[in-house]
Design a binder for these strands. Sequence first.
DNA 1: CGGCACAATGCTCACATTGAGCATAAGTGA
DNA 2: TCACTTATGCTCAATGTGAGCATTGTGCCG
Lengths: 332, 332
Amino acid sequence: MTTAQDTQRTEESALSNPSAVGLVAVIVAATDGEPRALTVEVDGQASGRSRGLPAGPLVPEHPTLERGLRAWVERQTHQRLGYVEQLYTFGDRDRQGDESQGLHSLSVAYLALVREVRPAGLAEASWRNWYGYLPWEDWREGRPAALTDIEARLLAWAAETTDPKQRRRREDRLALTFGLCGGAWNEERVLERYELLFEAGLIPEAQGQSGAASTTESGATGAPMAFDHRRVLATAIGRLRGKIKYRPVVFELMPPTFTLFQLQRTVEALSGTNLHKQNFRRLVAQQGLVEETDGVTSGATGRPARLVRFRREVLLERPAPGFRLRATRKPA
Amino acid sequence: MTTAQDTQRTEESALSNPSAVGLVAVIVAATDGEPRALTVEVDGQASGRSRGLPAGPLVPEHPTLERGLRAWVERQTHQRLGYVEQLYTFGDRDRQGDESQGLHSLSVAYLALVREVRPAGLAEASWRNWYGYLPWEDWREGRPAALTDIEARLLAWAAETTDPKQRRRREDRLALTFGLCGGAWNEERVLERYELLFEAGLIPEAQGQSGAASTTESGATGAPMAFDHRRVLATAIGRLRGKIKYRPVVFELMPPTFTLFQLQRTVEALSGTNLHKQNFRRLVAQQGLVEETDGVTSGATGRPARLVRFRREVLLERPAPGFRLRATRKPA
DNA sequence: CGGCACAATGCTCACATTGAGCATAAGTGA
DNA sequence: TCACTTATGCTCAATGTGAGCATTGTGCCG
């Protein structure tokens, strides 16, 4: 293992090997039953303008990475970030587009949840439905149409190898991530699916950054994003889908009072699946996640619903409250 | 939000704000029913020699952070890393001891699992039981003795505030993390517990790095580590304890064949709790995690046990196989 | 050699959780 | 008033889960 000298050298003078470090944020909101991420306009290197996630330099004046990010985003968006979580630190491979000139380049990605969608301040920034970038992830209307095309191309990709062993491995991965060949769809494997598509060459960002290489139309494989930002988005979605099952983070996306159905729609939007209504309510009720207010909805179609609010106390009570969501079998 | 110019500046010339980036690894093995982490000797800044985690500079020649880490560790330890996962990227606050001279300093921490414990190559490196650093985390022999002292001091810390609101908050946190005041112990909250102790001043590393400040004896609060490495270790343990519940990662720590009881001992070592033997076997069986070999143990006391091996196929079959471990109520 | 201690294994049982569906209530719009 | 839509209450069967009893092999000790 590392010698004492090695270690010392590292800890005390790592500055001999400085790197460019940036922050990227996936800022998520949910309105009208759609999951949205904040995107900005970015000058692509050669491919003209495209959309990307808000990103910025590491601001040195802050004590903690997270607090730095929080301040940075809140200053720019004038929105309070309800929940912030570090996602992942991406290294060079993914940061295509700036060939490191002897320098490493890293970006530390964060996930943030915001409650309200303001007009998004700056003109270049806007909220986009995240399934526009990853259409195969939305199973709320049943099996996404995008998958028909994708599956065919993935199977072709698996078949194009002559080495039977590698071919077997590819097929296994297809089963594991996309549920082909008898596998089951697991809504949390968002990143694995994205990376598989990337390897299979179905992601335009994969083919160098020259705009000319956009042979892949964005229909089935979704709209592209600048740099590796779609990978970051996929990471965020996967993480969030896992998190809502054991932590009450969805409430960070809800207004102060809401109906159980709105809550359900939000959870469904994030997870990309449909839930059994009655069971969802039972779950929320027995976990004690919400308390009733005396308000009810009005004006909408159907019987008026009681308005509820999040019970902040549960953060202290239950060891790990959240939704154990099992998708219903029936489509929609 | 970020303007297009901002974004561009960041992505293309973040080098205007370079940072010192290092890697830290928590390399875990389990032998003789004890969880161990690889530690090295480190020259503390003023506190003389102490132990720390293996750390090194970011090696630029590798395509991916993870692959870089893998190569780095494997070269140094001559051990194959079975499983590698990025843990967290720690920023300045935690990296005490090198006051950044205008530079940011980050360390990207990784968790790695190894199967066998070799003599640890270099003399300065050795495998240490991780509960030596976090004694309050080991509940296998019942409630850890260290907790009596710790709890008293934590309660005193909560009581020393005059502001009733802050005091309430502190008590809530004690309930949440340490299960005081009627809360339950959650074995995954390792990091939260460490950070609470840190804030309460029970962690010697907290009081600047001068050796003189070591007023806190290491009995109840565990042995100190260099830099913020105990925080990194706590992060790793918490993550691993969560992971084994839904992913079959424990097997990365096991020899090629083993008995179910050895497996149980390993899981217990990691989670720091005891499990109900029969139920554990039932779980492993019905999840199809292992398959029998024709070997049996011999020589040991008690009826010989069948040797089993991990069924690699489960990685493909079940959506998320792992142990849902619920601790038994009875002590040991 | 019989008895013991100690694990390994098999099996039962009460109870909680969960997936699904039926039925009824209470609004809106035609 | 009817048709439609959503809210909400309740039941039921299947499965999962925590605990504990019973039995079976082995090495060890008089």
